[in-house]
Design a protein around this nucleic acid. Structure first.
Length: 817
RNA sequence: GCGAGAGUGGCGGAACCUGGCAGACGCGCUGGACUUAGGAUCCAGUGCCCGAAAGGGCGUGGGAGUUCAAAUCUCCCCUCUCGCACCA
């Protein structure tokens, strides 16, 4: 009987049945001979129900996990929630709830939605980062960093979001605005906790070369973020005080062209030097303004502003005295916060020099062009050339001379080769409630003291006014912070800041390997058995933040001998964003489309297929363009209807399976396998559609299609797990799940065509097409082509000068010379 | 400005890795069949132009090049998206 497709009739039942059968639990038995495969999805924030982006990302990840099960792997496909942090906390406060219960409620909702969508998660390993059993180990790991000198506290200018009332990491500031709320970030001098990620800058950069299965754009973003520059450090002396100020430059070959010297306005020497020289009155307004304006305002401001400090620096290569300025265009966080300025060969210095009437001295001339004149040039010359007016280096060619000058500086004790990174240390403390308390006690006599491991977790109190307000809510609690110093027993105070959410999410994938482990964050044997992750799937918005931090964590844990590898995610897949009519979806815009109502109406398989068939997984999906009329039946739903009809008819069919269908079945297995391996799910689905159409043709002609139906159902299983299971067990009559069946294999002999289309061209234009045997000889192919109607017509009256024969695909007659 | 990626029908996209039938598959649209009038289903057509048809011409952002042959390889240009953005 032809079976009608009605998803609601069986999808919920399979959810329950799969759970009863424990179908998706990873097997821990070390004696299990199957290869292990760790399919990891970036865990979600519980800030509401699932959105369309989750539907796409997790559908893709689920295909990978299910495919690997069918390939015979022992698959670990866990799920958890990134439950701490600003997104959840802000959403809860906005709605008048406490973050904890609100987060829990969302998690339950998302969990139910994931199950309804047919995600093959191993629920026994579920974790929440806000659970004390989890954040205990987040704190424990923080202390390992602390003891190793990789977690430290310092006062420095930091990013402050006035709306969220907390500091932010550099990575959380997007174009000068808070990553979360979009408010312009301010700069404040505060004492904060940092992770010393800069110690790992070179390794993060070097190991990126190994990540060949990462999207190129993500690697590029990470490399740019780390921002390595090679150059030299050169020490200048301040004439008036004799103090030495070191600068970093990538162009030591232009040292002889330095005609002024610039300090960042925040540089600690600025005030002292200005007061000494009696210029503080002129300098102070600039310093104060830079301190108070937001980063964006500062960048948009007069870019070549600056004030003469009244003192002079001595150029170590020629003893020349050059004026010192303070200017906002020199950044305090990069290099040493002071620069030598070479206006002839740096555009920024050039503009500053012209503005302030400073000499522009050319020390590199273009090799094959008219010589430059510093007095008249209109822009800096940064290209390669010949060094001039540079003492012992006159005539040397740059950039080769950079290394020569560096060596010479080192020999003369005036400088040394140096490497600088753009990457800054990771600011991890937050003045907010919803995160793991930093497990440190501040003691007046002992200083910063680690909370002993056996006193972890330092629990987050629940009786707290968690409204943000400039200091951490934990500081406002009446009693929480008062403790005895673990070292001396005297009166002391807990650190009242909490850890950045990204600390929680930098190690969760290790915890999945040892769920519930009580003697540490994870067992090394477990982690080394499952990891590195076989396939990591998630959004490109984490290209820098989460992925860089997780790589950093893994390297630190490697150095602590807690894991046996240095890269956690060798294979990364980023799904594109789901947008609507060119804009991001949001409730305020009224263009939010949520997956669960669609699941209710059309079924989970339809939602999964819609996302996966829309285009390449890594491309953005514009819902407005793919969805069509919301009241019309989606195309993939119609296809599933045809699949149900074809498979059920095939079961009832008694005829012989036609050769063309057998052949197509094997070709499809070959093609779909390749597509799934390469994550090309849109084309995998299209190939299954073609097979479905061919089955229909065969059945309508009275033929059989049972083998095709079996293969189609199995290949459908990772993509549309409910429909495939229903067909597999009910229509095809199998006892056990299609999701534990073996992925079909193709017979190469049957996957190859016996006859192919021979294209006949004249001068590269198609003039005829012939069906020929796949093993046709070149001679026969040429003869057949020559005899074809199309060729005869097109060649009439023309001389054939050459015949290109590529049997069995093509023959091209060339008539032109 | 620097870096990365992308430009193919009315739409999403396929073919690009490996040069050889451009437009698979689906949506939409047009015409038809059927009917218990349904979220139907099925059949046919659907790049553009000329033509009744046969057939022909044009066609993958633009321009050059390599080649018997270019969406595909090379170079230049244009446009768009994303990321970074005074990083010395």
């Amino acid at each position: 009987m032809t079976r009608r497709y009605d998803a609601s009739a069986f999808e919920p039942a399979w959810v329950a049945r799969w759970e009863d059968e424990g179908l998706y639990e990873a097997v821990e038995d070390p004696a299990d001979p199957r290869p292990r495969f760790y399919a990891l999805d970036m865990f979600p924030y519980p800030s509401g129900d699932l959105h369309m982006g989750h539907a796409e990302a997790f559908s893709g990840g689920d295909v990978v996990a299910r495919y690997h099960w069918m390939r015979g792997d022992n698959v670990l496909h866990p799920i958890g929630w990134d439950a701490f942090g600003l997104p959840a906390e802000n959403a809860a406060i906005k709605r008048g709830f406490a973050p904890g219960p609100w987060t829990e409620a969302n998690i339950e909702q998302q969990a139910a939605s994931f199950k309804r969508m047919g995600m093959s998660f191993d629920w026994s390993r579920r974790l929440h980062t806000s659970d004390p059993d989890y954040y205990r180990w987040t704190q424990w790991l923080f202390l390992r960093f602390f003891h190793k000198g990789l977690a430290y506290r310092k006062e420095s200018p930091v990013n402050w979001c006035p709306k969220d009332a907390t500091v932010l990491a550099n990575e959380q500031v997007i174009q000068g605005a808070c990553e979360r709320c979009g408010t312009m970030v301010e700069r404040r001098n505060l004492t904060q906790w940092f992770f010393k990620i800069t110690d790992y800058a070179q390794r993060l950069l070097d190991d990126a070369d190994e990540l060949v299965d990462w999207p190129e754009r993500v690697l590029t973003m990470q490399r740019n973020w780390i921002g390595r520059s090679e150059g030299a450090e050169v020490t200048f002396a301040i004439e008036e005080t004799g103090e030495e100020i070191t600068v970093f430059t990538t162009r030591p070959d232009t040292l002889w062209g330095a005609t002024f010297f610039v300090f960042a306005v925040e540089h600690p020497a600025v005030r002292r030097l200005a007061e000494l020289a009696g210029t503080w009155e002129q300098v102070e307004p600039l310093v104060r303004r830079a301190d108070q304006t937001s980063l964006v305002e500062r960048e948009a401001a007069d870019t070549r502003e600056g004030v003469f400090l009244g003192v002079y620096a001595v150029n170590p290569v020629n003893g020349e005295r050059i004026p010192c300025y303070a200017a906002p265009y020199v950044l305090t966080g990069y290099g040493t916060g002071a620069i030598m300025a070479v206006p002839a060969h740096d555009q920024r210095d050039f503009e500053f020099a012209r503005r302030h009437g400073i000499e522009v001295r050319v020390v590199v001339q273009p090799a094959d062009d008219d010589p430059l004149d510093g007095a008249t040039m209109t822009e800096a010359f940064a290209a390669e050339g010949v060094m001039v007016a540079s003492g012992p280096f006159d005539g040397h060619l740059t950039p080769a001379s950079i290394a020569e000058v560096t060596t010479w500086l080192e020999g003369a004790g005036r400088g040394k080769g140096a490497i600088n990174f753009r990457l800054r240390d990771w600011l991890i403390s937050r003045q907010r409630y919803w995160g793991p308390p930093i497990p440190i006690v501040h003691c007046p006599t002992c200083g910063e003291v680690a909370v002993p491991d056996d006193e972890l977790p330092v629990r987050l109190p629940e009786d707290v006014d968690f409204q943000p307000g400039g200091e951490s809510p934990l500081a406002r609690h009446a009693t929480w912070k008062h403790v005895a110093c673990p070292t001396c027993g005297g009166e002391a105070e807990r650190d009242t800041d909490t850890l950045d959410t990204f600390v929680d999410s930098s190690w969760y994938f290790f915890r999945y390997c040892s769920p519930g482990y009580e003697d540490g964050p994870f067992r090394r044997e477990d982690v080394d058995r499952w990891m590195p992750v076989g396939q990591y799937t998630g959004g490109v918005e984490h290209a820098i933040l989460h992925l860089l931090y997780s790589r950093f964590f893994t390297k630190v844990l490697y150095d602590l001998e807690m894991v046996g590898f240095t890269e956690p995610f060798p294979r990364l897949m980023n799904q594109g964003q789901v947008i609507f009519d060119g804009a991001s979806m949001s409730k305020s815009k009224g263009n939010l489309v949520e997956p669960m109502p669609l699941v209710q109406r059309w079924g989970a398989d339809t939602v999964r297929l819609t996302m996966l068939f829309a285009g390449p997984f890594e491309d953005d999906i514009d819902w407005k363009l793919i969805a069509g009329d919301p009241d019309k039946r989606p195309g993939v739903h119609q296809w599933l209807g045809r699949v149900f009809a074809a498979v059920s008819d095939a079961v009832a069919s008694t005829g012989e399976e036609p050769e063309a269908l057998v052949r197509l079945t094997h070709k499809t297995i070959k093609g779909v396998t390749e597509d799934v391996e390469r994550f090309r799910l849109n084309t995998a689905i299209s190939k299954l559609m073609v097979l479905t159409n061919e089955m229909r043709t065969a059945l309508d002609a009275g033929g059989g299609a049972r083998a095709a139906a079996t293969a189609l159902t199995q290949m459908l299983a990772p993509l549309a797990p409910f429909a495939a299971e229903e067909l597999w067990r009910v229509e095809l009559g199998n006892e056990s799940s299609v999701h534990r069946s073996s992925w079909p294999v193709f017979d190469p002999a049957l996957a190859a065509d016996t006859s192919v289309t021979l294209v006949v061209q004249v001068d590269g234009k198609v003039r005829d097409k012939l069906e020929v045997a796949a093993d046709i000889t070149e001679t026969d192919a040429l003869a057949a082509a020559r005899a074809s109607d199309g060729a005869r017509r097109a060649l009439a009256g023309l001389d054939v000068r050459a015949e290109i024969v590529r049997a069995p695909r093509l023959v091209n007659f060339v008539t032109r010379s």
